[in-house]
Design a binder for these strands. Structure first.
Lengths: 367, 367
DNA sequence: TGTTCTACGTTTATCGTTCTACAAAATCGC
DNA sequence: GCGATTTTGTAGAACGATAAACGTAGAACA
């Protein structure tokens, strides 16, 4: 018995139990108005109300008016779980790889923009940077019959995403899969962005740029950090650097490791004079590390990030960054999602061009 | 059998659309394994499977083993929507007042801790600082039969929360309602925290502390910013300040307004020598503003925040802050929630004591 | 020995929607 | 004015779980 819920089935001898009214928090309807009551009140059939709700075909203006009046009068709200049994849930699951990344709020704003005025509501799952947690969340979303999933910065493989795509519409953000046919994507051109970084640093007069990127075992070529690395490399080559002079250090997603990696770079032989953090939240930690070493930014060392998230603008950061129009990306992701749900069967991959948002952290002038 | 799903009622508004047979995106089961198939495979009744699933009373070990084997073999996952019709959804809705606040991730980690090992999954709704949006999200959560709601930093009135509490178990975080009986809460002692700020600043030698707080029309006494203000005021009084010397300026949740407010304070008569931002994300903007004015921190002006969120530790911020043990709060909120769902009927209000996390931004020494 | 209790398992009604199939009414074409 | 459509509306079967009610067999008790 211990550990089991609900010790009483029909076993109680004294069955006279008074039907208490108090509804515990869980289960059971709470005097919720149902579609049946609305139908009764409006003097039409249940099916008619359902049609009005879904904006379906075959509803006269007069009937619609009656039904809407009753809905308003009774303050009826459709029971989403019941809907899910037959139709849609009008719910979009959004998987956030983590909640600390200051870039994501912009994307979320964009998603909200794109969903505004529809019946769809976004709910968020937070992956905490763990692939297994991401998978669990995706499962939980599918179990809940969500109509579509938007995944931001997730690290699942394309195959895993495609498997899920058979159960719900999917749009990925921060993951390049231009060849994918079963799901859509919305991104900026991360490779171009990586190259922009080099071009900007060189133009500012820096001579020895290095990059700090994300260290993870499970990254594939589709990952944004890898694309940015690729762009960085080709930019460096184009600027005349020998491959042996192109330095990319990897650090775990953890301030201590980022700090240690920065130290290693700066205290080693031939230290860089500018560091590119693959994302703002890395670059902000790079700033912290170089300041802790007593270096001046931008004179002793330039720092540049990626995302152009709000903290970049703070005076104490004043961080140059690559703007990837997060809000625009979010807006388009929502649009793609709605189109998929509406029936589009072919894949679409939205890409926006990045640009440099110049601030003081790379303000070294050509000497 | 696989019969004709989706003849799709020839009812489309315009008859242009040719409905294809497979609709991955919306509705309909996708070859999902059902409880019935599990029952058949295991050679027991569906009720038996259901009992195993719910860990309910009346299951022999041998039957449980059989059922679990079949579940594993068929990779069965319960259909949450179907469960919601009769029982629970095993879903906890978490309302985040906004995503930008760097304090919330800690709380979320705590919630995850508290939910780990249970069947419950948290899903997040994001309020973007708008009360109407908060209400919409709460509605959406209730519509989806979520078993409980944890609200972080929301601004709804107690009456509104209590109305919702009749439909789902509720725990609030960042909102003081010690008298509430229908829902639980988990907080730090914000009033004490406000006083701690004054005590710390005075001990460091600052002479004229001021506070910058949140300006909103709809704040009540239950709100954390108000509690912190109250603590600040009583701390100042205890330190011997006359009421006329206690300055609390309000700024909208917006970097430009915070910057303008800081300017106004510092360029006005009798400027403060230390500023307390009611939350870290305000204090970080205060730091930005004072640096933009060319002031040195901590010599010319001390700055202190509240929450002790990760960015405080960055060298460029090095921000003293009040630690309110967010993770602990989150953990307890989850615990309270699970207890409520399990049937607790009396309210419980968890409070943790705040403490000062000293850093360089208030390092002025007694002269 | 008969009665009660307990443990375990099944049958079946039910939750609130959607959507197919069908009927009735209105409109159209000629 | 009459058949052929189109429009508007309804009835009722799912959807996949939960849980109340009940059956049965054996153990414990008297």
């Amino acid at each position: 018995m211990p550990g089991k819920r609900d010790g009483k089935t029909g076993l109680c001898r004294r069955q006279e139990s008074v039907q208490t009214m108090d509804r515990p928090a869980s289960g059971g309807r709470n005097g919720r108005v149902t579609i049946r009551e609305v139908a009764e009140d409006a003097g039409v059939s249940v099916a008619a109300v359902s049609k009005v709700l879904r904006d379906a075909y075959g509803v006269s203006d007069v009937m619609e008016a009656k039904v809407r009046a009753s809905i308003a009068k009774l303050d009826y709200r459709p029971h989403t779980a019941a809907r899910a049994m037959r139709g849609q849930t009008y719910t979009i699951g959004v998987l956030l790889a983590d909640v600390k990344n200051p870039f994501f709020p912009q994307v979320i704003d964009g998603i909200d923009d794109g969903l505004a005025g529809t019946q769809y509501v976004p709910f968020f799952g937070i992956g905490h940077g763990s692939t297994s947690m991401e998978k669990a969340i995706v499962h939980a979303m599918v179990d809940r019959q969500m109509d579509g999933l938007i995944m931001i910065g997730q690290r699942m493989t394309d195959a895993e995403v495609e498997a899920t795509a058979r159960q719900a519409a999917i749009t990925v953000i921060g993951h390049h899969a231009p060849q994918a046919t079963l799901f859509d994507s919305a991104n900026n051109d991360d490779e171009r962005g990586g190259t922009l970084v080099v071009e900007h640093l060189i133009a500012q007069g820096y001579k020895r740029p290095a990059m700090i990127t994300l260290r993870r075992a499970d990254l594939g070529q589709a990952d944004v950090s890898q694309r940015r690395e690729a762009g960085f490399v080709s930019g460096m080559r184009a600027a005349g650097f020998d491959d042996s002079a192109i330095r990319i250090a990897a650090a775990a997603d953890d301030i201590d490791d980022v700090t240690a990696t920065v130290r290693m770079l700066l205290e080693g032989p031939n230290p860089p004079d500018a560091i590119f953090g693959w994302a703002d939240y890395y670059a902000l930690e790079v700033l912290s590390a170089v300041r802790a070493l007593g270096l001046r930014v931008p004179e002793d060392i330039g720092v540049i990030g990626y995302d152009n998230s709000p903290p970049c603008a703070y005076t104490q950061n004043d961080l140059t960054s690559i703007d990837q129009s997060g809000r625009e990306i979010g807006r388009n992701a929502a649009r793609l999602m709605l189109e998929r749900i509406a029936g589009r069967k072919t894949a679409e991959h939205f890409v926006v061009q990045p640009r440099v948002a110049v601030r003081n952290s790379t303000a070294l002038r050509n000497s």
